[in-house]
Structures are given as structure tokens and as C-alpha cells.
Amino acid sequence: MGDERETPPGSINEDEPQVNQDELILAQQRQIEKELGDLEPVSSLNNEYSTDPIYLEKVKDLSTKYKYVRRTRPDGNCFFRAFSYANIERLLEKKDEFNQFYKLAEESKDVLVELGFQQFTVEDFYDTYMEVLKRLRNIDDIDEARKELHTLFNEQGFSDYMVVYLRLLTSGQLQKEHEFFSCFIEGDRTVADFCHQEVEPMYKESDHIHIIAACAALNTGVRVIYMDRGTGRTCNEHDLPEGCTPTVHLLYRPGHYDILYP
């Protein structure tokens, strides 16, 4: 998942003329100049599928559970950008949890350095990450804080550095729990190799394993709603890690994640 090479099993009916997902995604990329768009009603997804009854049915199902969608730039970083944004956004309403999260973030650089990351390669990303959190912490009005979050995540300099830092935290988590995660890595790559090739570089898309490690790194859970051309009228949902109480909701369409709001 989250990777053009893989599709969830049974999701695409080979006999169907396939909607050209690549073209749709390219169109979306041109359309949103922003890293993250404004809130749009879930029904706005209909515009992309006006001739596709399967998707239309699923958008209908989706709109019974969610009110809004926030689109993200489909550049391979979408999971990390969406997850980082949505997680901070929901913490803005919860001062105590925000402060706990802040403390965890403050300590995170030392953890990475202990794991073997060179300090000077991590520093700038950490500093940007903390600066964003600090700026948000200093704003008392929640709506103002939301606006600031949106502004910062749409400034490429901040936004990309937030993405990199979450990639590094995810890599750190995978390496910390390498014994557990090694079972999920195909081929004879070590967890560290996997991190260097699939997690740390920008624009590499995310799979289940990235999501589970990112959730553990940020100490939260996510619900992913899968919307594809698979049979059935409803979208499948998946909580990661399994059995968690999800705080962040993401919409997955083959190759891409956007944020959902109940």
C-alpha cells in the first residue's frame, strides 16, 4: 500500500477498464498548489468520479462517516505530511496531551543520536520540528493555532523539514524495534537497510510498516479508510496499530493518502 507497485489484495478487478489513477493523481498535483489543502466536504470527491459508479457508491458510504476531507500533495510524502499535520492539529485542542507530545519531541533527537544518527545531519530537521511546535504552543486561541499550523505546513521549507523529521523518527522506531520489524521486511535486507532505502529518503511512499512505526513513534493510532474499485459498496477500514483508539483518520486511495474529519 501507499506504493504504486503494490495494491491491497483483491482491490482491482483486472477486467474493468481501469481508471487511470496516475493521471488523476497528476491532475490533483497540478490542482493543489498547496502541500495541504483547505477542508472540503467529502462529497467533493464525487467530482473526480462522475462516471464511475463504484467510486460514487463508496463516496456515499464515506460521507455517512466523515464530513470533511483535506487533500495533500501527492508527492510520495503524503502519508508523512498528512499524519504529522493531522496529529498536531488534534493535539491543539488538548493542552495536556500537546505538552506531553512536546516533551516526547524534545527528547527525540537524543534518542536518534543514540541510535547512531549523526548529530549534525539530524539537527536542522529537529530544530524546525521544535520551532513549529513551540510556535503553536505559544498561541492560546485554538483557531489561531490551527491557522498557523496550516500556514507553516504550506511553507515548503517548514513542511518538507517536518516530513523529513517524521521520516527519521519512523526510521528510529523501526531500528529500535528491529527484531520485531525484521519479520515484515521482504528479501534479505536488514531493518537498517530498509530504513536507509525506503524510509529516510524523501518522496519514498509509505507502506503498512511505515505507518505502524510512525504511530509508535508519535504514540498514537490511525484509522485508514481504503477506497478502491474493489467489490462491495462500503470502504474498508483498518486501525493501526490493531485495536487502537484512532486519533487520526486517513483516506487511502491507491497510491495516495488524504486526511479525513468525522
Partner: peptide, 22 residues
Amino acid sequence: HAPGDDPMGYESSAERWSPVQS
């Protein structure tokens, strides 16, 4: 080169560019 950018068909195990390289 970043992963996926393969002018020479590098082996998948080869070391790649990422922001924590130097």
C-alpha cells in the same frame, strides 16, 4: 542518487541519498 532514480540500474541494496547522508 535517491532511490528510484536509477540511471545505472543500481542494486536495490546499494547505498542511496537521503537527508541524513553527508
